[in-house]
Nucleic acid binder design. Structure first.
Length: 289
DNA sequence: GGTAGACCTGGACGC
DNA sequence: GCGTCCAGGTCTACC
């Protein structure tokens, strides 16, 4: 099966849209950086897995799959691809305030096919090294998702102790299963939160109300839904400001609060795109530093 | 409202 | 080889 996705944003570049946020390294996503092929097992009817490859040809994306794909499932895959690559975000105001980002077409940061997946991935990224995050996501797909990223229903059916043991997610197991059950049983309407036009404070409050989501994770989730006016400050931010901006990391809570305020001021001129300005600095260092 | 301690896991580091 | 620390934090009990 082969079909196209268009229109694409002006000057869209698949490589840039995939490789500027680390979630492309997490299972079940696979990115062939030599051939510029994105592979992902998408969810089709009744959550069945549809392995597919996405490539770019001029002004369209080409999706190919060895599976049969119904017309409705093509729609599902289009929706998932458009979310992953943020095809529907208008970044022209961001490019207007950041010339270097405009030149490099930087700003369409890779994310997951669903917000649920982004929340779980964010939880697996907290308080661990990146290699552990990669491992947790691989084990979640292998042992719970049947090769794809686990659905809320699949995770809701797992006992936290089993998840801890099989997927090595540690204390995150109880939090992940609780979230999955809240979503699967309708207590959290996760799709309704995937809306950048909603009030920022309301969104932040809804994310922070999820057990296991604190200030860092809530801010990170804001950028995942397209709200860029906050910087998720973590130990990586501290390191960046030590190494690039020469600011030492204080040890006291009061000192840290002052540093946070300085970081906020540093990016204030890019409002409401502070996160993109921060990530541009950080990712540029990852890529070329 | 602010703070200390616990929390899974695995890699890095010093000895 | 072993112990300790800590990594792209968060929660809870306690003051």
């Amino acid at each position: 099966v082969r079909f196209t996705i268009r229109p694409l944003p002006p000057r869209f570049d698949l490589k840039q849209a995939v490789s500027t946020y680390g979630y492309y390294m997490l299972a079940p996503t696979r990115w062939d950086k030599q051939r510029l092929v994105l592979e992902y097992p998408f969810r089709g009817a009744r959550d069945r897995l549809i392995p597919a490859r996405v490539t770019q040809r001029d002004d369209a994306l080409i999706v190919t799959s060895p599976s049969s794909v119904s017309a409705a499932e093509r729609g599902n895959i289009r929706t998932q691809v458009r979310r992953m690559l943020r095809l529907d975000e208008d970044l022209s105001p961001w490019f207007a305030v950041h010339a270097a980002a405009r030149r490099q077409r930087f700003g369409r940061l890779f994310r997951s096919t669903t917000l649920f997946e982004d929340v779980v991935r964010t939880m697996t990224g907290c308080n661990v090294t990146w290699s552990s995050t990669i491992r947790m996501n691989q084990l979640l797909c292998d042992h719970v998702g049947g090769g794809g990223f686990p659905t809320p229903q699949q995770l809701a059916a797992v006992k936290p102790d089993d998840l801890k043991q099989r997927c090595k997610v540690g204390y995150r197991a109880e939090r992940i299963v609780r979230l999955a059950r809240d979503v699967a049983e309708g207590r959290i309407d996760i799709a309704a939160l995937d809306d950048p036009t909603r009030d920022r404070k309301e969104l932040y409050g809804a994310f922070a109300a999820i057990h296991g989501v604190g200030p860092y994770a809530a801010r990170n989730l804001l950028q995942h839904v397209g709200c860029y006016d906050h910087v998720p400050i973590d130990s990586e931010t501290y390191r960046h400001f030590r190494e690039v901006h020469g600011m030492s990391t204080p040890k006291t809570p009061g000192g840290l609060r002052k540093l946070h305020a300085r970081i906020e001021r540093h990016y204030a001129r890019y409002e409401p795109y502070q996160f993109l300005a921060y990530w541009f600095e950080l990712w540029h260092r990852y890529d070329f530093g």
